[in-house]
């Protein structure tokens, strides 16, 4: 089954300030949508609006030609979300956190140990999450994406807090996800340098 995500006429105001107006986009398997713009330009708001976390002033987001607000469960089942907050419990260990998360989404079938090794987290398995550095916690959030069977990755500043090696890792994970027919919407203020078909939306 082929998948696609379209947006048309997306408009959002915050107070009386217009963040974006009549935005269009179309996303097919293997493609990435890059949301660019400086701080406060509304990248995160656009991302959250596509994810259905905030309501748009007008416009619709279509998942396989079906408005997402009509088919929220179908859309949520196809998406995994990475915001600037990692969304884990600091008191629980990495494994406990990911085990809970795995009950929220369909599993991708990847082995947990394998994913943790790939992300360089194997040694931190038994530690409470709060003792991990911000960058390491971002890597755990990447583990969530790898463990979920969702074709659409939505990432808000995936490279923040990560070292050079980590940023490279994000790039290679994205590339292989898109190479396998996935899709991604990435909000970033710096360029994500990977060689895939990329649509760009620049917010003012």
């Amino acid at each position: 089954m082929s998948i696609k995500l379209n947006g048309s006429g997306l408009t959002l105001y915050r107070g009386d300030r217009c963040l974006f107006k009549d935005l269009e986009f179309a996303l097919n398997p293997g493609e990435m949508l890059l949301l660019e713009g400086k701080n406060g330009s509304g990248k995160t708001s656009l991302l959250r609006a596509i994810a259905g976390l905030i309501e748009l002033e007008s416009g619709t987001v279509l998942w396989n030609d079906e408005p997402v607000e009509n088919e929220r469960q179908v859309f949520c089942n196809s998406m995994v979300w990475m915001s600037h907050k990692v969304g884990f419990k600091g008191d629980l260990t990495l494994v406990d956190n990911l085990r809970f998360e795995s009950s929220l989404r369909l599993p991708s079938g990847r082995e947990l140990d394998e994913v943790l090794r790939q992300l360089g987290l194997s040694r931190l398995k038994r530690l409470p999450l709060r003792s991990l550095s911000a960058g390491q916690q971002r890597r755990v959030a990447l583990a969530r994406m790898l463990l979920a069977a969702a074709p659409l990755w939505m990432m808000d500043e995936p490279a923040s807090n990560l070292d050079a090696e980590g940023r490279e890792l994000v790039g290679s994970l994205l590339a292989s996800h898109l190479g396998n027919g996935g899709m991604a919407i990435v909000a970033a203020h710096q360029d994500v340098e990977i060689d895939v078909p990329t649509h760009r939306i620049r917010l003012q």
Binding site: V80, H84, G87, F88, K89, G90, E101, L104
Partner: peptide, 9 residues
Amino acid sequence: DGSLEQLLV
């Protein structure tokens, strides 16, 4: 901590 957001999506 953002885990509520994860429940929402």
